[in-house]
């Protein structure tokens, strides 16, 4: 989880933040216009696939990249988000936006609880604990009839949501907004006191305590924030697919990609997860269309091996080498 710190930003932080939101907003609008120009319904779905990973990778990076705590349970958090949407839909008939808000709350609380129970564990023990959490959650969902058990649950989604031309476009734009927000949050963490504290924890937790960093509190904030955003990444999934089953929601690919994407792009930097997610998810989407989705994990595996060997600090780390 190595990363190199950038020198303190030269620009005042307020302007730095404004430039991100303006830049990301402009990029988002350009992306929507481009896909409209292409005018293929499939474009929205492929775009969504990539963007959900941008959210997931940015979320994982907050704990794994900055603080160095490797969470193997990303699929569990993401599925928590997806199933929160299902429950809100089944119980109250709520749509995707309330689903996202609910997912943030539920997955955030799950992150807080997990953090409280596991953060005294260091290194690989923490990782194993998060992996088991995912397994336990899947077992619960499989046996929970209200959300369809192992058969899964269907969602009847609206045909279209004005002013969007199609539901595909709508759900894409929703995920695009989430991605801009998730990356923006990661970036804000990086340039804040919280981010510095997490980096100190990653480098040397004992020394961080010794100089007055409240390590447990910062780690709990990070697990909560990271968990909430991973839940958000999964929240629109039932509306995107129209259907959700445990096998899909807890897909191993989510857990593996959540780790691989930040590592390949450059963990511990706000842009690294974006680069990794766009690169890996696009490759996987292309492989799914041209060959088979069975290749996805195979691709990630090879990319990881290549990158760990050649660019141990990820793509960004390689550019910033000094």
């Amino acid at each position: 989880m190595s990363a190199t710190t950038l020198p303190a930003p030269a620009m005042p932080t307020a302007r730095l933040h404004l430039s991100y939101w303006l830049g990301a907003g402009a990029l988002a609008v350009a992306l929507i216009l481009l896909l409209r120009l292409i005018g293929n319904e499939y474009g929205w779905y492929a775009g969504y696939f990539v963007l959900q990973y941008v959210v997931l990778a940015a979320a994982w990076n907050i704990l794994g990249g900055y603080a160095g705590y490797v969470n193997f349970g990303a699929a569990g958090f993401m599925a928590t988000g997806s199933y929160t949407t299902i429950v809100l839909y089944e119980a109250l008939g709520l749509g995707v936006i309330p689903g996202i808000l609910g997912a943030a709350v539920v997955a955030g609380l799950l992150g807080l609880g997990t953090g409280y129970l596991t953060l005294r564990l260091r290194g690989v023990y923490f990782s194993i604990a998060t992996l088991s959490l995912s397994v336990v959650l899947q077992t619960i969902v499989v046996n929970w009839d209200y959300v369809g058990g192992s058969r899964g649950a269907y969602i009847i989604r609206p045909m279209e949501v004005p002013p969007f031309a199609s539901y595909g476009e709508y759900i894409f734009v929703v995920m695009l907004v989430l991605a801009v927000i998730a990356v923006g949050i990661g970036r804000t963490v990086e340039f804040s006191r919280l981010g510095r504290g997490l980096q100190a924890i990653r480098d040397n937790e004992r020394a961080a305590e010794a100089v007055g960093v409240p390590t447990l509190r910062l780690k709990l904030i990070a697990t909560t924030l990271s968990g909430a955003l991973m839940g958000v990444a999964g929240a629109p999934l039932p509306f995107y697919a129209g259907y959700l089953n445990p096998e899909g929601a807890f897909n191993l690919a989510y857990a593996v990609n959540a780790i691989a994407m930040p590592l390949i792009g450059g963990a511990g930097t706000w842009l690294g997860p974006v680069i990794g997610a766009v690169l890996l998810a696009t490759l996987q989407q292309a492989a799914t269309v041209t060959i088979s989705s069975a290749l996805n994990l195979w691709i990630v595996g090879w990319m990881l091996v290549i990158f760990v060997a050649l660019f141990p600090r990820g793509i960004l780390g390689w550019f910033r080498r000094r």
Partner: peptide
């Protein structure tokens, strides 16, 4: 010595101040 290895010398010393 237990420095914060990925932080610059200046940032190493800023960390305690940020939280105080």
């Amino acid at each position: 010595p237990q420095p914060f290895t990925s932080l610059t010398v200046l940032e190493n010393v800023r960390v305690p101040l940020l939280f105080a």
